[in-house]
Simulated assay, not measured.
Amino acid sequence: MTATTLHQDVQIGLVQIRVSNLARSLAFYQNVVGLKVLRQAGHEVEMTADGRNVLLILREIANAKVLRRNSAAGLYHFAILVPDRPSLGLVVRNLIAEGIEVGQGDHLVSEALYIQDPDNNGIEIYRDRPRDTWRHDPQGHVVMTTDPVDVEGLLEASEGLVWNGLPEGTVMGHVHFHVGDLGQAKEFYVDLLGFDLMANYGDAAMFISAGGYHHHIGLNTWAGKGAPAAPADAPGIDYFTLLLPNEEERSAVVERVRQAGYTVREEGGVPAFADPWNIGIRLVLKA
């Protein structure tokens, strides 16, 4: 297979997840996360930060089996990127006010907060440091680590500001998945789709992106090597969208995926397929 690289302007679009109780999840994503309802139709709700662009779709499934955390391949977390440090400080203030248990990590390139929704779907809310401050190793990989977040500094940065939910400029920054085999994940996401490897932690985790971003997708084997795909009747991820800059780029990706033996179908008017762990991917053109 020839080496292929995705267009540098590729981004993550929206994420659709399965939940067991729509009313409970709606309350959580509005009050705790700070998203707003854009549209609701039956058992699906589209959620937004800016009132225009969909970031998250909640789909309620009947008689859902809620899995233990980190027990199957599928969603580890989706990551909501806020535009600046004061915005992340306001998120901290709201999570404290709501009494939510929060994990956190300063990854050098970013400051990140981690929470779980009522169905154990993982959520990261983070802000990036300026790209010109990111460091790279001799192989060109982005240097990342996990240090404690300066929570006091975040609170100071948001002093006197009022929480009104996630602000204008909030986007879906990346997605992070449990997979059953990191080599197979690299074959699919790097060799086939065309993402670049940005950081590699042995056979435990890798981070990949387009255009030099620290990562658009994280992949790990923390649910166990050989972890099976999460069942369709359990909460988790249905699909995420890749935003592509033009039809030429989209057609090239579709052709590579078909040539590799994966089934590509039309969903909502866009090409759709699944990775080896049944995580759905839809290819959407940027507006």
Results as ranks from 00 to 15, higher is better:
Asp233Trp: 02
Val32Gly: 04
Ala64His: 12
Asp238Tyr: 07
His107Tyr: 11
Leu285Cys: 10
Asp106Met: 01
Ala287Lys: 15
Gly224His: 05
Asn21Gln: 12
Ile115Thr: 05
Gln259Ser: 14
Leu283His: 05
Val254Thr: 07
Leu285Gly: 13
Gln8Glu: 15
Val171Gln: 08
Trp222Glu: 09
His215Arg: 02
Arg69Gln: 15
Ile279Glu: 08
Pro231Asn: 00
Arg39Asn: 14
Val142Gln: 09
Pro271Ala: 10
Leu6Cys: 07
Leu35Thr: 06
Phe273Pro: 13
Tyr239Ile: 01
Leu166Gly: 00
Leu22Ala: 04
Arg135Ile: 04
Leu285Gln: 11
Gln259Leu: 14
Ser158Met: 05
Glu111Tyr: 01
Gln16Tyr: 04
Pro228Phe: 00
His176Ile: 01
Ile96Gly: 01
Val257Asn: 13
Glu168Lys: 04
Tyr29Met: 06
Ser209His: 07
Thr170Phe: 07
Gly261Thr: 01
Pro138Arg: 01
Thr48Gln: 08
Ala97Met: 12
Val270Thr: 12
Arg59Ser: 15
Asn220Ser: 05
Glu247Phe: 04
Gly236Asn: 03
Ile115Gln: 07
Ala234Glu: 01
Gln11Asn: 10
Glu255Tyr: 08
Thr146Asn: 13
Asp275Trp: 02
Ile281Cys: 04
Val151Arg: 03
Val270Gln: 14
Asp117His: 09
Glu111Asp: 12
Asp181Lys: 04
His176Tyr: 02
Arg127Gly: 09
Gly51Asp: 09
Gly180Ile: 02
Val162Ile: 13
Phe28Asn: 03
Tyr213Ser: 02
Ala27Gly: 08
Asp50Ile: 11
Asn70Arg: 15
Val284Gly: 00
Arg68Val: 10
Ala274Tyr: 11
Arg24Ala: 11
Ile12Cys: 07
Met206Pro: 04
Leu166Asp: 00
Ser251Phe: 10
Val142His: 08
Ala185Glu: 00
Arg250Trp: 08
Asp119Phe: 07
Ala252Thr: 11
Thr221Tyr: 03
Glu249Lys: 08
Asn120Thr: 03
Arg282Thr: 10
Gly261Trp: 02
Ile208Arg: 04
Val254Leu: 11
Arg69Ile: 15
Thr170Ala: 10
Leu75Thr: 13
Ala97Ser: 15
Pro167Thr: 00
Val32Phe: 01
Gly269Gln: 05
